[in-house]
Design a protein around this nucleic acid. Structure first.
Length: 798
DNA sequence: AGCACGCCGACT
DNA sequence: GTCGGCGTGCTC
């Protein structure tokens, strides 16, 4: 008789184990086991228990397993599959483009709590050891021991003095609360108590009163607090009340305070966009709308339409935009059909939101990147707001881009996909040009009075201020003027590119790489300027190559320093600082914003995070302290990022009836990214930047793949990097360009040296195969300590 | 990853 | 001679 076997992907992320393993299904589990469930299986020589996912079935007669001694599944962890057929197919599809192990992809789709934790339980027959190390207890948990004890126990184990039992435990728990229901109201009235039992009598009359008012169930903890545990227990033991546990969701508090909200009337442009989106799901839409043009209202109505059709929807927003202000709009419109996936939630809360989605209770999922995996059925709409944000690409394994997953899922479900932005990524905008996406435009601000703010560029070379390195006189005067009028100011400090480049203070010249048109990065350790793309290296000049001035400065400045400077220059200004340091604590972000909104400060000083979606009617001045820093990063997207950021922050000024002003301080007043942001000219920027990308063979004209090699020994990693480059060259066509190998901007971390290669290509049939060969290299014993990361379409080069 | 097997140096 | 160091290879 042939027994059924299961194909299991085990929780060991390595190349050699990246395939299904076959396990016998014990008789008693045969009926309940399904594809997509989690199991515990014995793995390896030690038969240690390991979590795995069932991805298929087969039978023991098949060729692959014939004559093998198969092990059996130890335990099934789920009553229902945690992964559905769509997710398993999606994982297969993602493996083609995301160079990651299948187990990592599957785990990325589930809340953390569904990953088992592993431990070993030690027991002993040896009386001496028992007395000395075990004390009162029968068994020890290996993980609770310190390193020395662990080593000692392993020694005892080798000597056969203690036995080891492997355990794997699912961490998922369902939060419950105790509830009391009235079991017998006649008994309640007849309950006999002496007059001395005051508390019992009090509870009796309380219950009678409530019962007459129509109440039949009470929260256990509340009653215990009101009376006492013993009194409540007495009623339970008498059979008057019965105790039960009901499930509660950990993340429901936010529904209490929200006032519900109705559709707003769409203007003509919004209406056209909305109709186009609900009419056809043939291709994705790019919704290009200026700040304040009412993209969100279009999203809300598209989602409402999907729900009316009995479908569901996913709304992705960047992590930093996922504020209560933002999510409340969705809750106000869709009530408790909304699930919020937020990094601020605890693992338990995330698990509860996931279960709410899985059970079908949630129809709309609002969340950051990973919410794209939400296990919704029958999706009618997927929306990605601020589509250009790089945070949609995960920068650790598995390195997937939420936009790509969205495209796949929208196709699978026949759902409408909307990519929205005021400043679309060049990749997306170019696809719209190619008619892969359909472009929809919103050109007017939704509220008629809100005018587009006037943007002034301050040339810092002419506005050098003796009193301050960060502020020009013009900006300081403007700030004082606004404060005097009791209006508010937002100041943005661009912290990207901290201290990593040099610039001439007289002419604004920044040295660039002769091969790559990218600014050189300052390396203080080697006293050189390096190009992070092609590896070009030169010394630090003592005089400016452009104007021969000696005023060469190293650049970089922190918010804290700027805040100190500002409070010295304008002593009576009340300043709120918002950056990574002041927003570390949970809720700090909201606290700062609501305090500023309440007028408790005159100036909000912050980093990039203040550029996103704030809407304060009293803000009439936005100042950008250093527009340049991001421009000088060794990244071909530097101009694009700068343009996007400036456009976004400029949108923060003058959101209501007061006209807004924007002041941008820069040493590169003629740079096109700054000029075109000033003119609010996205299309102009797109055309110009595309020309550069074409000339230099960068995306969207070329695709990119980055390889990062890491090793403890620098000579070794250089040697291996060149070997890998030759391997790639041999396998790819002449059209592919390979840049590098060069050291990463941060060349050594965790005691490892990192080198990178960048492949630019248009059509390479052999690319995947060549990259797999590179991965195979890590399996050769000679390369034991070499780590290789393959990043398809990298977004960041730091 | 993590465990067993196995082949070499420093101790009884 | 043997204990235990960690390099090598495998896990249904």
């Amino acid at each position: 008789m042939s027994q059924k076997i299961a194909q299991v992907i085990v929780d060991v992320p390595t190349m050699q184990t990246d395939k299904p393993f076959s396990y016998l299904i014990p008789e008693e589990l045969a009926d309940l086991i399904q594809i997509g469930m989690r199991v515990h299986v014995p793995f390896g020589r030690g038969n240690r228990l390991m979590q795995g996912f069932v991805v298929g079935f087969g039978d023991a007669k098949s060729q692959a397993t014939a004559g093998q001694n198969l092990k059996s599944i130890a335990e099934v962890l789920d009553f229902d599959p945690v992964l559905n057929a769509e997710q398993l197919m999606l994982a297969d599809a993602m493996r083609e483009t995301v160079f990651s192990y299948k187990i990592s992809l599957l785990k990325a789709m589930l809340p953390n709590l569904l990953n088992s934790s592993y431990d070993k339980i030690l027991t002993t027959e040896d009386a001496v050891i028992a007395q000395q190390y075990f004390g009162e207890t029968q068994a020890l948990h290996f993980s609770s021991l310190d390193e020395k004890e662990q080593a000692l126990m392993m020694k005892f184990h080798r000597e056969g003095k203690i036995s080891v039992q492997y355990v794997a435990q699912s961490k998922a728990t369902i939060k419950t609360k105790k509830r009391l229901t009235l079991a017998d109201d006649i008994k309640l009235d007849e309950l006999s108590m002496t007059a001395r039992a005051k508390k019992r009598l009090a509870l009796q009359s309380f219950l009678q009163e409530q019962h007459h008012a129509g109440e039949n169930a009470w929260d256990y903890t509340t009653l215990v607090k009101l009376f006492s545990r013993d009194v409540v227990k007495f009623f339970v033991s008498e059979g008057v009340l019965s105790l039960s546990e009901i499930e509660v969701s950990r993340a429901q508090a936010y529904f209490d305070t929200i006032v519900s909200d109705e559709h707003k009337v769409l203007n003509a442009e919004q209406e056209t966009a909305y109709q186009a989106i609900i009419d056809s799901q043939e291709k994705p839409f790019l919704l290009e709308g200026v700040t304040g043009s009412g993209k969100t209202e279009v999203y809300l109505q598209v989602i409402a339409h999907a729900i009316e059709q009995g479908k569901t929807a996913i709304m992705l927003v960047p992590e930093i935009s996922l504020t209560p202000l933002m999510t409340n709009r969705f809750i106000a419109r869709f009530g408790e059909h909304v699930a919020i996936m937020h990094s601020g939630l605890s693992d338990g809360e995330k698990y509860d939101e996931w279960r709410k989605i899985k059970s079908g209770k949630a129809k709309v999922v609002v969340g950051a990147r990973s919410a794209i995996f939400a296990p919704l059925d029958n999706i009618g709409a997927i929306i990605i707001d601020e589509e250009h944000e790089t945070s949609y690409k995960q920068d650790s394994n598995p390195r997937y881009h939420a936009r790509d997953v969205a495209i796949w899922r929208a196709k699978y479900h026949g759902a409408a996909l909307v990519l929205g932005s005021a400043t679309p990524s060049l990749e997306t905008r170019a696809r719209a040009q190619q008619n892969v996406y359909q472009i929809l435009r919103l050109t007017q601000r939704a509220s008629a009075q809100a005018e587009i703010p006037e943007v002034t560029i301050l040339d810092m070379r002419k506005h050098l201020n003796d009193k301050s390195a960060s502020f020009s006189e013009s900006l300081l005067d403007k700030i004082s003027e606004k404060i005097a009028k009791r209006e508010q100011v937002v100041l943005m400090l661009n912290r990207r590119g901290y201290s990593s480049f040099i610039m001439c203070r007289d002419c604004g010249f920044v040295p660039e790489c002769p091969n790559c048109d990218i600014s050189l990065t300052l390396h203080m350790d080697t006293k050189t300027l390096n190009c992070h793309y092609c590896g070009y290296t030169t010394g630090i000049p003592h005089t400016c190559p452009n104007c021969q001035s000696k005023k060469i400065r190293y650049y970089g400045s922190g918010t804290q320093k700027v805040e100190e400077e500002l409070s010295e220059l304008i002593p009576d200004a009340r300043i709120l600082r918002m950056d990574v340091d002041t927003t570390k604590k949970k809720g700090a972000h909201e606290r700062i914003l609501s305090s500023f909104g309440a007028g408790e400060a005159d100036i909000l000083l912050g980093t990039q995070m203040i550029a996103k979606g704030l809407d304060f009617p009293n803000v009439t001045l936005v100042g950008v302290i250093n527009a340049d820093t991001a421009l000088n990063l060794p990244d071909f997207r530097a101009s694009e990022r700068t343009f996007q950021l400036l456009t976004q922050v400029a949108g923060r000024a003058g959101r209501a009836d007061k006209k807004g002003e924007v002041l941008i301080q820069t040493f590169n007043p003629d740079h096109y990214a700054i000029r075109l942001a000033q003119a609010h000219d996205y299309e102009g920027f797109y055309q110009l930047e595309m020309a550069f990308r074409r000339k230099l063979n960068y995306p969207p004209y070329f695709y990119t793949v980055q390889l990062v090699m890491s090793h403890q020994d620098e000579d070794e990693v250089v040697k291996k990097s060149y070997e890998i480059m030759s391997l790639l060259k041999a396998n790819l066509s002449d059209q592919a360009r390979i840049l590098g190998p060069i050291p990463k901007p941060i060349a050594r971390t965790h005691n490892l040296y990192h080198y990178q290669l960048l492949i630019k290509y248009r059509f390479e049939d052999n690319l995947a195969q060549a990259l797999n060969q590179v991965l195979d290299l890590t399996q050769v014993s000679d390369n034991k300590n070499l780590r290789i990361v393959i990043d398809n379409e990298p977004q960041n080069f730091m």
